[in-house]
Amino acid sequence: MGAALRLLLFLGATLALGAQNATPPPIDLQRIHFGQWKRELASLKGRIVVVDVWATWCAPCLERFPHVVTLYNQYKDRGVTFVSLCVDDREDPQAVEQARQFLRRQKAAFRNYLMDENITQAFEKLDLLGIPAVFIYDRSGRLRHNFNGDDPNHQFTQKQVEEALARLVADQDQ
């Protein structure tokens, strides 16, 4: 009986540990300098990468974010890596916390970064006027689509993002 109980306890503990290990890490927001960001992108070569640039001060970004999560769930097992890049004011701890909470509410179970640069410089380095913006890189690491709102006469839609990603995945599956 003693041995059986010990075995049961051992099995129970193992299962509990296994279950614990299977729990995904909590959704977090990791600071990243621009140099690290470039290295991160380079390290993802070989995969299609979708980058969503957003901030809590950007209402359209918050409205569009669920679409990125939907795409993530659709493509996560098809060689596509999703990354969110937050350009909130790194010196406003409450805004950073709000961004973290937003990601958790959205169940953004992908890589979530906070650009650890002065906001003006972040936009300069990303060569971007404004957000929301979605960048799609192909497997060779080339920027294939740069969806942004920088031209009033060429605004991007969620449908365009979907179609561009579907095309890229289909092309590269062949």
Binding site: P60, I119, L129, G149
Partner: peptide, 10 residues
């Protein structure tokens, strides 16, 4: 200069 702020959605 590079304008910085919220997006105008058209």
């Amino acid at each position: 200069t590079r304008a910085q702020g919220c997006t105008v959605e058209y």
